[in-house]
Simulated scan of single mutants.
Amino acid sequence: MVNPADFDAIRITLKLALVSTALLMLIAMPLAWWLSQLQSRFKPVLEAMVALPLVLPPTVLGFYLLVALGPQGVVGGTLESLGMQHLAFSFPGLVIGSVVYSLPFAVQPLQNAFSQVPQDLLDAAATMRAKPLDRFFSIIVPLTKHGFITAGVLSFAHTLGEFGVVLMIGGNIPGETQVVSTAIYDHVESLNYAGANTLSLGLLLFSVVVLALVYSLNRGAGRMLGGSVGSNTTKPQGGRS
């Protein structure tokens, strides 16, 4: 059975996932577009920096975020000097940690989708005096909506399962910073395997649904973009003999 503390953890987890995903989409959209259009020898370095959370141990990332956001850190110390509270062991701190840790899951699907947009469509729109923002929202966004959906779904799902980062930067304060993953850890420590199993099973089922949805979207998007590219690159059969 799910107890009231677990319901609090579920509520905080969902709130964290929603807020983090919204911020990630706002940050990832211009960053992914810039990376998809960038022609520079430093591009691999920039892409590696964005993808770093994929290979960096969560506790390492969480530790440095804790140092930065804590009372002695650059961010936390500055806030305290201004009469405000530092961000360690708080919900805003959890949001910052989640955004940093899930950034690749938002940027990479968008960057891949942007890279597949036929350039001739953008060139044609430019000849019709469409401004860059007009081209982006009238051509690019409709053609890459699958990328936005994939980025949003993966970011949301990844936030639900975070453990190392949220434990380091948020602690495990019931009703404030305790999320589902840390609640499972508490249940296991107290040998409450039934409670841990209930929460774990919920995350497991949700993960399967999310992955099935993402693979389905990617397969459909591949057919759609393939048809779009094909229709724009097909040449007339008739020609000079």
Rank of each mutant, 00 (worst) to 15 (best):
F42K: 09
V60A: 11
L52W: 06
G62V: 13
L65F: 04
G83N: 01
Q111L: 11
F105Q: 03
F114G: 05
L56F: 07
A48H: 03
A106D: 07
S81P: 00
Q39K: 15
P58T: 12
F63M: 02
P92I: 14
L46W: 06
P92M: 10
A51W: 02
G76A: 02
P58E: 06
F63Y: 15
Y64M: 08
A48N: 06
G76Y: 00
A48Y: 08
V95R: 00
E47D: 15
V100D: 04
L87S: 06
F105S: 02
Q111W: 09
G77T: 09
S102N: 13
Q108F: 15
Y64C: 08
L82C: 05
S115N: 10
V67K: 14
L79A: 01
Q85H: 13
L46Q: 07
Q72F: 04
S40A: 14
Q37K: 15
Y101M: 15
F89Y: 15
G62C: 04
L65K: 08
L31F: 05
W33Y: 15
P57C: 09
A51R: 07
L38M: 15
L65A: 02
H86Q: 08
V99C: 02
L103V: 09
V45K: 07
T78C: 00
W33D: 03
A51S: 14
S90E: 02
V107E: 01
A48S: 14
R41D: 09
M84V: 07
V45D: 03
G97S: 04
P53V: 08
V74K: 00
P57M: 08
V50N: 09
T78H: 05
V50T: 11
I96M: 02
